[in-house]
């Protein structure tokens, strides 16, 4: 553990710096597993970490957001608006909704999936015509993948969240072995193989 911690200290940003990651999606998409693996991996490299997520009503198909912050010492578990280094969005509308939390030079990683909220289903509101284009007009670093397609190719359509985690891991300075070790500790053994495949697929996307 000690050796790992020392190695990683060299890799991460200077002391006072905090990395802010926002994971957004729709209730039921599996954002919580993604944040659990992320926070576990961060812990392994010896960083202080705080995670904030809201349970309850939002679970029922509502907009969900998990905030992960890590660094030498973290006070607030909440990311102020405009301070996220990375947004990992499981759904396009949610990507747009939370975009104001992203730093000017931050990266937003988007799963190219559309889930209509009830007002859109009812015809009371319109789903943004081109959410991705709108995001691109406001931020430079926009990465879009078809997580479902990649997950199916990797053998499990339900592992979209792990595919997205693999994508996220490319943007963080945490050793790949640390990710895989955390994944092993987090997911049930019977799903491990497909989840590792899904992670690798996300990593290579």
């Amino acid at each position: 553990m000690c050796a790992t911690a020392e190695q990683s200290e060299r890799k991460v940003k200077p002391m006072s710096d905090i990395t802010n990651i926002l994971i957004v999606g729709v209730g039921g998409q599996g954002t919580i597993l993604a944040s659990r693996v992320l926070s576990g991996a961060v812990q392994k490299i010896g960083q202080d970490v705080k995670v904030s997520e809201i349970h309850g009503m939002a679970q029922r198909g509502g907009s969900v957001v998990t905030q992960v912050r890590y660094g030498k010492e973290v006070a607030s578990p909440i990311i102020p608006q405009g301070e996220a280094d990375i947004i990992l969005a499981f759904e396009k509308l949610e990507a747009l909704r939370w975009l104001s939390y992203l730093k000017e030079n931050g990266s937003i990683l988007i799963n190219d999936q559309r889930i209509d909220p009830m007002p859109v289903i009812m015809g009371a509101a319109d789903y943004p015509a081109d959410a991705i284009a709108a995001i691109r007009s406001l931020r430079k670093n926009v990465i879009v993948i078809d997580g479902l397609k990649i997950a199916i190719e990797a053998g499990n359509p339900k592992a979209v969240n792990v595919v997205l985690l693999g994508l996220l891991s490319k943007y963080l300075q945490i050793d790949k072995n640390v990710w895989l070790e955390t994944l092993r500790e987090t997911v049930p053994v019977k799903f491990l193989e497909t989840n590792v495949k899904a992670f690798e697929a996300g990593w290579n996307s």
Binding site: Q59, R60, G62, L96, R97, P117, M118, P119, A125, Y127
Partner: peptide
Amino acid sequence: ALNTPVRPPVLC
């Protein structure tokens, strides 16, 4: 551009 429709919780 962030005029996004709300996503209220719904019965599952």
